[in-house]
Design a protein around this nucleic acid. Structure first.
Lengths: 293, 293
DNA sequence: ATGAAAGCGCTAACAG
DNA sequence: CTGTTAGCGCTTTCAT
């Protein structure tokens, strides 16, 4: 009979807004790559439970404080790492929370990707193709993040296992990597990239140098996206189910909302990545002299 | 002295949540391409004014009704086209609103991109390079959207202006476009793509056929993204300032919120695109026989 | 000027 | 089990 409950009054009376915050800093790039898929699944998973996502970028305006402390949200997601004062505020408010892509605080629920396993599989793939000199490369624009260490560990584990020599180029400009790939007689024939960004940059650079992929250089990346699938050549990459992260994360905080603070238990859920072999990797290269760019 | 106003109580008392809805359907792909930048700027522009974005995907759950009719939001953005009952609800609620990427209702405020000018510039660019057979291509996965017609009109206007023949391949699978590009003696030497998706697909296909770009085929796309900038070759494309769309949109609805319903005036704001010339276009091709894929 | 009080629309506790 | 009422915490109006 046309009656509509007033959601503001209900929120006031019940002490719940049915909003869940998404706390993130600029450098988390939540609107890039796989992250958008995580966010998308977050929105949908929450909507299914009659909740909505409240975006709370942490910036100098301090608007996040209003949101977190003012009772605008019933729980929140912490996207990657955050300034300590934000975590403190969340804790003191006893706000249900799930960390997304951050494992720095074992007392909080979290969902993480098994990056180590992913990088291990990627490196093993190159080793299996006969590559002996394999570079691990992280571009300088990548911000410090736990996955860097995880992926590096996976790479090292595979390399060490077969007694190869490590070649690491960490948080460096791509010029450094190109230098290593193009100069000297002992150039790497394979490269494990931190993510699709490095892969894209390197493919682009090699194209300029006339080094063909995978004939002369094999490349593995991370992240399975439209753009990587249609690179020339299509990128061999470590993919994972990003939507699952959102679903699991939503379940965690919704569960905690329904649980009195005292009986909440931090739980960590892991999503397993898998290697997707495409055209950017092949048997260890017969080397050709690079032409100058 | 540590006092925190309770936002729920304030929302109740004042009758405003400081939330602005983002109404969209699945097929609007708001987490793809330029759209993510629009959304991102929306979030930031609102936060600057102490508002927050409430994502309201229109799905079968009908959750949007609660949000729109239940007073969960003080205004909203309509992202591309929506089912008519949603628009009706928005209108009846007299909710301040701005259309984003949709010009179907002149009685509502809106911000649009001048797609016609963009496509015109793209086509003129190819004409200027001496191309005589220029194809306009929209992939089948693109959903009906006003920009398709606009871009087509821009293409036609440029083509007709110099008396060339139109070649249009609308809402077709890429196989159709490839067919046109690869078979026969009178193949197009230039192609205007609806967006970066078509450009990516075509570049990928031509790579398989051994047709080199831009030597044998020139391609112009739409959207300026990391992925298009680092394509091989880098894509000549029509770019526009997506962040501006969010800023203007936010201004429009915030303004209307501060204005009594009776005195609100629909205003349309246009953002001008510009052609970014990169490596995927060059002088009209000397044709080579395609090798079989 | 400052301070008291009514009211927003719902929920939950309580009385009948 | 149904019907009444107090109360959530702020804003705004009205009296002082």
């Amino acid at each position: 009979m046309g009656y509509r409950p007033n959601l503001r009054a209900r929120a006031f009376s019940r002490g719940r807004t049915h909003g869940i915050g998404l706390l993130y800093t600029d450098d988390a790039w939540i609107f890039e790559g796989m992250n958008t898929q995580v966010v998308n699944s977050l929105v949908r998973a929450l909507q299914r439970s009659k909740y909505h996502l409240v975006f709370a970028p942490i910036d100098s305006s301090g608007a996040w404080e209003e949101i977190v402390l003012g009772g605008q949200i019933d729980g929140c997601f912490v996207f990657q790492s955050l300034p300590p004062e934000v975590l403190t505020a969340v804790r003191e408010r006893e706000l249900p929370v799930a960390l997304l892509g951050d494992n720095s605080d074992p007392t909080m629920s979290q969902v993480v990707v098994d990056d180590m396993a992913g990088a291990y599989a990627a490196t093993k793939h190159l080793i299996g193709l006969g590559h002996k000199r394999i570079l691990f490369f992280v571009h300088q624009t990548i911000k410090p993040h736990c996955s860097i260490g995880e992926r590096l560990a996976g790479y090292r584990s595979a390399i060490d296992e077969v007694g190869l020599k490590r070649h690491e180029c960490m948080l460096a400009p791509e010029e450094d990597a190109i230098d290593i790939l193009v100069r000297g007689d002992n150039r790497p024939t394979g490269i494990v990239c931190y993510c699709n960004l490095e892969a894209t940059l390197i493919v682009h650079a090699m194209w300029q140098y006339g080094i063909s992929i995978p004939a002369n250089l094999s490349i593995v990346g991370f992240n399975d996206l439209f753009a990587t699938k249609y690179m020339t050549p299509p990128l061999t990459t470590v993919g994972f189910d990003a939507a699952k992260i959102g679903e699991l994360g939503a379940r965690l905080v919704l569960q905690d909302i329904a649980t009195p603070h005292a009986k909440r238990q931090p739980v960590v859920m892991t999503v397993k990545p898998k290697l997707i072999v495409r055209g950017s990797t092949g048997p260890a290269a017969v080397r050709v002299a690079p032409r100058t760019a």
